[in-house]
Design a protein around this nucleic acid. Structure first.
Length: 493
RNA sequence: GUCCCCAUCGUCUAGCGGCCUAGGACGUCGCCCUUUCAAGGCGAAGAUCACGGGUUCGAAUCCCGUUGGGGGCACCA
């Protein structure tokens, strides 16, 4: 299915891609995919002082990690390029000159001092309108031309038509939003240094690129009537807008550094799965049916719709993100879990090296006990650590030893356990065999189940908390299990 | 100051006039499973639908106002 839907995500490279931007990108991407449209990535770098190439690269990398592939934009090109604003300066100049020639824009020679004076005066006389007072709007065009040619500094301002009534914006999430054109001032579209302003450049780009739907943050809603003025001056069709609410921190304030990680790549580095992250973010302000929470990206790309976007600002909840991540880990197939979570985690923790090789069935058995205990990839290594230790290198947790081993009678328990385990032949060393061997011990020793297994657990794993004993010991191997008991014996009384 | 937006469990949300004594998810709590920890299963608590007026036979849903939050009003984006 193809359609003429064209949407764009247009970050300005003044910083990293943050959570709010990522969510906007996801919505644009999903909307394009769901409608067989085109997803465009454009770099809005009109502010040369704050934009950097490095930030652009970080944003592209984050987009790739999120799995948001763009059809037109940096690196892939497209017939509406170039796709960064610094390369489009001529297009803005052309558009501005046309508007000037048509009398839809005019030069303004007011100085910054003059303007702030006017603003203060308006404030002082409690004028409800505190915008530009239109001093230069009626300067004779010929005189204006002379002053421009003489080198006098000027900006270009849009001329809001005198008879323009209400400006009605069609917004897919807010419905019709009405602004009184009287509130609009003749805002600057070109600075005196010859660069375009944001409100002008974006509209020129969106018009030239044939953008049909503008999905962006709520903070632009109040600017939209100004932009509509530019579309109309340009004679371009006005797109459908969809203004989405902001994402807040737990204190209800706009999400910022104070709330912890805000950039996409911090979440990647923390070990969050791209799929889980995208799923979680997509639900921050959108719902499929109000019931479903696990929504794989293919489903999102098929079912996303603007009319299910919520108007409320959403609070970012790290706990639910964690749950989502665990959910995706739990739903992986074994092979994926081993390749994408377990092995990398073990490597990062230094438990194995690049040349590590293990029997596939052994790895599957390890994965089976590790996976349900893995919320974040790093958890996997923590859980698996005892398996990768040896009797000599195993680290014994002090508290666990004190509580579970260094007590009266523990020596007897370990002796009995050792004997029972030794009775298992190397060939039949397995989880069921180990469980069967250990099972009668409490009765034989007339000791509590809890106490017996706790002692063996600490002896084998160095900790009172571990995955099930039989499975773990099967993975450790018979010889090392026996050796661990020997070592633990010296700690028991 | 002015304009615009928003308002349902702690959080994300469902709800678009009767199906709502308000549904789902996260979190919290309890129980089951169990040698520990998880995972899983079952269940519970939790929202006078911000408040006040209307409209209507009937309102979380429509209208007005109030309050509270947020955003814009720049030669920032």
């Amino acid at each position: 299915m193809t359609s003429n839907v064209r949407v764009r995500f247009a970050p300005s490279p003044t910083g990293k891609l943050h959570i709010g931007g990522a969510r906007t990108a996801i919505y644009n991407w999903a909307f394009a995919r769901a409608n067989g449209g085109t997803f465009i990535l454009r770099i809005d770098d009109t502010d040369p002082t704050r934009s950097t190439e490095q930030n652009t690269q970080i944003i592209l990398r984050a987009m790739r990690w999120l799995g948001l592939d763009w059809d037109e934009g940096p690196e892939v090109g497209g017939e509406f390029g170039p796709y960064s604003q610094t390369e489009r300066l001529d297009l803005y100049r052309e558009a501005a000159e046309r508007l000037l020639a048509e009398g839809r824009a005019y030069p303004c020679f007011c100085t910054a001092e003059q303007l702030s004076q006017d603003r203060e005066a308006a404030q002082a006389r409690k004028d409800p309108f505190q915008g530009y007072q239109r001093r230069c709007r009626d300067i004779d065009p010929d005189e204006a031309r002379r002053r421009m040619d003489s080198g006098e500094p000027y900006t270009l301002r849009i001329k809001v038509p005198a008879d323009r009534g209400d400006v009605v914006i069609r917004d897919a999430v807010h419905g019709e939003v009405v602004f009184d054109a009287k509130e609009l001032d003749d805002f600057v579209i070109f600075r005196s240094d010859g660069t375009p302003t944001y409100n002008f450049a974006t509209v020129v780009d969106d018009a030239l690129m044939g953008i049909t739907h503008v999905i962006r943050g709520d903070d632009h809603l109040s600017n939209t009537p100004r932009q509509v003025m530019v579309y109309e001056a340009l004679g371009a069709p006005v797109p459908v807008f969809a203004h989405i609410s902001m994402i807040l921190g737990a204190d209800g304030k706009k999400l910022s550094k104070r709330h912890g990680a805000t950039s996409v790549e911090e979440y990647r580095d923390a070990g969050y799965l791209s799929d889980a992250f995208v799923n979680y973010l997509s639900l921050l302000g959108w719902s499929l049916d109000g019931e479903t929470t696990v929504i794989p990206r293919e489903v999102l790309a098929r079912e996303f719709s603007l009319d299910r976007i919520s108007k409320n600002p959403a609070t970012f909840d790290p706990k639910k993100l964690d749950w989502m991540n665990a959910e995706y880990i739990n739903r992986m197939d074994d092979e994926t879990f081993v390749e994408c979570i377990l092995l990398p985690s073990l490597r990062d923790a230094g438990l194995i090296d690049e040349g590590f090789d293990a029997d596939p069935s052994w790895l599957t058995a390890l994965a089976a006990i590790v996976r349900p205990r893995t919320k974040m990839p790093a958890d996997a290594a923590v859980v698996a650590a005892p398996v990768f230790a040896t009797a000599n290198t195993l680290v014994y947790d002090e508290k666990s030893v004190a509580k579970g081993l260094a007590k009266e009678g523990m020596g007897d328990i370990l002796n009995a356990a050792r004997a029972a385990l030794e009775a298992i032949s190397p060939k039949s060393w397995s989880a069921p065999a180990i469980d069967a061997a250990l099972e009668p011990l409490p009765d034989e020793l007339d000791a509590k189940k809890r106490i017996v297994f706790q002692a063996v657990r600490v002896a084998e794993c160095g900790n009172m908390v571990s995955p099930p004993l039989g499975e773990t010991m099967a993975l450790i191997g018979r010889d090392d299990c026996l050796a661990r008991i020997d070592r633990a014996r010296s700690m028991a009384l």
